[in-house]
């Protein structure tokens, strides 16, 4: 799956969470830090991961949700899983 496509879908999911909506305008910045910049709570992260699993048909097994620091980390992970 193309990186741009992943980012567009991810943005769709993030827009439904508690992420700061101002940061989601325009193209999704891969450098955004999930907790510090987006203001994600741990439950927000869990919600996002469930959304990603359903939308992309992948599983986040054997990985802690705290391992993802930036949006880019999540995009990388989805890219790897959807290869």
């Amino acid at each position: 799956m193309e990186r741009q496509e992943i980012k567009a879908k991810l943005k769709e999911i993030l827009s439904l969470t508690d992420a700061d909506s101002g940061l989601l305008e325009g193209e999704l910045d891969e450098g955004l830090r999930l907790r510090e910049d987006c203001g994600f709570s741990s439950v927000g992260m869990l919600y996002t991961v469930i959304g990603i699993e359903e939308m992309f048909g992948i599983r986040f097994d054997s990985v802690g949700l705290g391992s993802f620091v930036t949006v880019g980390d999540v995009v990388d992970f989805i890219g790897e899983k959807t290869k």
């Binding site: 599983r59 986040f60 949700l65 705290g66 391992s67």
Partner: peptide, 11 residues
Amino acid sequence: VDRENFGMDSF
């Protein structure tokens, strides 16, 4: 469950 780094395995 790991409260610091919750994972989908526990979920």
